[in-house]
Design a protein around this nucleic acid. Structure first.
Length: 274
DNA sequence: AGGCGTTCCTGGGGGC
DNA sequence: TGCCCCCAGGAACGCC
């Protein structure tokens, strides 16, 4: 599932082609693809607009247009790629023509159809719904200390909450908690300062390292099939995620998989004590 | 306040 | 080989 590093990798691979391009045409192939308005209105909002910039906040990809903002969320299986040929690819749910003669398209592929787009006239309407991005200036050690202590929630649940920190998902929460030796079911206000500091460092280091390696490519999110996409190799550097029944890289005990916050959760019980 | 179940979807895996 | 069932999960929402 695309999380912050995978979203950044997608942006890095399409940005150059899109900046200063006009969305000449928008075709939508799935009725529920637009989250906050109907498909025809969305097309009216974005067609013939120029893309001034493209960046992300958490897992949201933001296209800054000369008027308004087009926003994309990849959810579980979505991906975006630049192509010269919009035909004969399965699961294409949207196609944006960004150059003509010869044609260049931005395609949105999504097998499970959970992903989609928003249009915002004012981007603050998105920002007020989500929390702090780990690369925002305000995300500091003291911010994390203060805000983790404020709540009494299972730490995994809290870290997955996009209204708290936006960008982390199941993979990087499991990795960060293993790295900082915190059991995912620990109530947030009970975690000591030393471990919260370790958690802060883990989150930043793991995300930076994953971005450097173009993210994690697993089953559901194989975007290496397109010319302009790099294969994420962070999969080879994962310490716990998807490594149940294998040995912990720190203590050599067996990693197990449990359920926390209704999510598959990978832990080393010897490293991550309650 | 915080946790949990449901919904949206489809490919793939397990069981028989 | 084939068929059916069930499951994974990000985010929104309702309920307790």
């Amino acid at each position: 599932m695309p999380e912050l590093p995978e979203v950044q990798t997608v942006i890095n691979s399409i940005k150059k082609e899109l900046i200063n391009s006009k969305i000449i045409r928008c075709e939508l192939f799935w009725k529920n693809i637009i989250y906050n308005c109907n498909n025809n209105d969305f097309i009216q909002f974005i067609e013939n607009k120029v893309i001034n910039d493209i960046y992300r906040k958490g897992k949201y990809i933001i296209y800054e247009l000369n008027q308004g903002f087009m926003v994309c969320h990849l959810r579980m299986t979505g991906t975006l790629f630049i192509t010269k040929d919009k035909r004969n690819k399965n699961h294409i749910q949207a196609c944006f023509t960004i150059k003509s003669s010869p044609n260049i398209y931005l395609s949105f592929k999504d097998i499970r159809k959970f992903g989609g787009f928003y249009y915002f006239e004012d981007i603050r309407n998105l920002y007020k719904k989500i929390g702090t991005d780990p690369f925002d200036k305000i995300f500091t050690e003291s911010w994390l200390l203060k805000n983790i202590k404020k709540q009494q929630r299972m730490i995994k649940h809290l870290l997955l909450d996009q209204k708290f920190i936006c960008g982390l998902g199941n993979i990087y929460v499991d990795e960060s908690l293993w790295s900082s030796m915190i059991h995912p079911e620990t109530l947030s206000h009970n975690i000591n300062r030393k471990k919260i500091k370790a958690l802060y460092k883990s989150i930043i280091i793991i995300l930076e390292d994953s971005i450097k390696h173009n993210g994690t490519t697993i089953k559901d999110f194989e975007f290496n099939q397109f010319d302009n996409m790099k294969t994420g190799t962070y999969k080879n550097r994962l310490k716990v995620y998807n490594r149940d029944k294998r040995k912990c890289k720190r203590c050599f005990n067996i990693i197990i998989k449990i359920r926390v916050a209704s999510r598959g959760t990978h832990i080393c019980l010897s490293c991550q004590k309650k």
